[in-house]
Computed example of a mutant assay.
Amino acid sequence: MEAWSEVFHEFQPALWEDHNSISLDHADLVRLAQRVAHSLLASNLDPPIYCADAYYLAKLLYYYNRVVTDLRAELKAALYTHSKQLVSFIAGMANGNCVVERVLRDTRR
Rank of each mutant, 00 (worst) to 15 (best):
W4S: 08
G92F: 12
K76F: 06
I22C: 06
T81R: 13
L61C: 15
W16F: 15
L29N: 08
L57V: 03
T69W: 10
D70H: 07
G92P: 01
W4N: 12
A54F: 05
S23Y: 10
V68G: 02
C98Y: 03
N97A: 06
K76C: 03
E101F: 01
M93A: 07
I49V: 12
W4R: 14
P47Y: 14
Y62K: 10
A3P: 00
H9M: 11
A58P: 02
P48H: 15
N44A: 11
A73F: 02
A77V: 10
H38K: 11
Y64C: 15
L32E: 09
L60I: 11
V68L: 09
Q12I: 15
H19S: 01
V67Q: 04
V30K: 04
R108S: 14
N97H: 04
S43T: 04
Q85C: 05
A52C: 09
A33I: 13
H19D: 12
V7L: 03
A73Q: 05
L104R: 01
D18A: 15
P47C: 12
I49M: 09
V7A: 00
L15A: 10
A91R: 04
A14D: 14
L15T: 07
L86F: 06
D46L: 01
L32H: 13
G92K: 14
Q85W: 04
E6M: 07
V87I: 14
V100W: 07
I90Y: 00
W4F: 09
R108E: 14
A14H: 07
Y56T: 10
S43K: 08
R105L: 08
P13F: 07
I90T: 03
L29W: 11
D46R: 01
A73N: 00
K76H: 15
D53W: 05
E101A: 02
L32S: 13
S39T: 12
Y62A: 10
A33V: 10
S21L: 14
L41Y: 03
A33R: 03
D53I: 03
N65A: 00
C51D: 15
Q12G: 09
A94N: 01
V36R: 11
H19G: 08
A27E: 06
V7H: 01
N95P: 02
P48Q: 11
V30Y: 06
H82S: 01
L15R: 09
Y64G: 13
C51A: 15
H38L: 10
M1P: 05
D70T: 14
L75F: 00
Q34H: 09
V87H: 00
R109Q: 12
Y62V: 01
S39M: 00
I22Y: 09
I22T: 12
F8V: 15
F11H: 02
E6G: 00
Y50S: 14
L15H: 04
N65Q: 01
L71I: 13
L71G: 03
L15E: 10
L40D: 03
Y62G: 01
T81F: 11
A52L: 12
A52I: 12
C98S: 08
V67K: 11
D18S: 13
R72K: 07
T69F: 11
H9K: 14
P13N: 10
T69C: 10
P48C: 12
W16G: 05
R109C: 05
P13Y: 12
Y64H: 15
D106Y: 04
L40Y: 03
I49W: 06
I49T: 11
N44F: 07
H26T: 09
V7Y: 00
